[in-house]
């Protein structure tokens, strides 16, 4: 994070000095804080509205219902977990929250799922698949983005829903193929029997640093 901040400022300064145009930089320094606040206002309002609504949805049992719906998919992806294990439940809750565009709600479930995965001594492959589920960011309702698009003046802010879903499913698929390739010797599922030998070294990646 430090590196990112310093790099961004440094390349900005160096470039504008080299281009001989420092006025845009001083302008950026002057009004960035205000821009940040405007941006924050947009995001914060959406976050409040949707966190509130999702709490209502949780109390009304909608989240549980969705969890049930995604269970078969989870079972397919995390195949060495027992279907009724606490790890599976936490993973399903985590995935559901992500699906609804609730990164904040997803995090605690994700952490619990990781703990349970460790206790269950599941394979590296399952953990990688679970992480992938989170980083591929499959969303049904990308509310923050729709809000930002509306704030930027788009007449059709929510026409991005399908493309986003399509693209994340595509990248999730690529990630899963990578999972199959990387962890192939250990637990290769029936993905067309495409087993490419990559030396079974991955099991060594377990690191029992006693804590």
């Amino acid at each position: 994070m430090n590196i990112l901040l310093v790099t961004l400022c440094a390349i900005g300064l160096v470039y504008s000095l080299a281009a001989g145009d420092v006025s845009s930089l001083s302008l950026a320094a002057a009004d960035s804080a205000e821009n940040a606040l405007k941006l924050w206002l947009t995001v914060a309002a959406a976050m409040m509205l949707w966190s509130g609504l999702m709490r209502v949805a949780e109390k009304a049992g909608i989240v549980d219902r969705l969890c049930q719906t995604v269970r078969p998919l989870m079972r397919l992806l995390l195949r060495d977990l027992p279907p009724e294990s606490p790890a599976m439940k936490a993973a399903a809750m985590n995935f559901t929250s992500n699906l609804l565009g609730l990164g904040n709600a997803a995090l605690p479930f994700g952490l619990r799922a990781m703990k349970e995965l460790e206790t269950a001594r599941c394979s590296q492959r399952t953990m990688a698949a679970f992480i992938l589920l989170n980083t591929a960011s499959v969303q049904l309702v990308p509310m923050n983005i729709i809000t930002l698009r509306a704030a930027a003046g788009s007449p059709t802010p929510s026409d991005c829903v399908l493309p986003i879903l399509f693209n994340s499913l595509l990248s999730l698929t690529c990630g899963l193929l990578a999972v199959c390739a990387v962890y192939s010797p250990a637990l290769s599922p029936g993905k067309g029997g495409k087993i490419r030998n990559k030396k079974p070294r991955e099991e060594r990646a377990w690191n029992y640093s006693g804590s």
């Binding site: 990112l4 400022c9 960035s32 940040a36 924050w40």
Partner: peptide
């Protein structure tokens, strides 16, 4: 949601400034 957003605000201020430097300088 509001609490999470408030935690986000200070970092966002700094990051938007840094990004503004890199972006608006061209």
């Amino acid at each position: 949601g509001l609490n999470t957003a408030i935690e986000l605000l200070p970092v966002l201020l700094l990051v938007v400034t840094a990004v503004g430097f890199a972006y608006r300088s061209g």
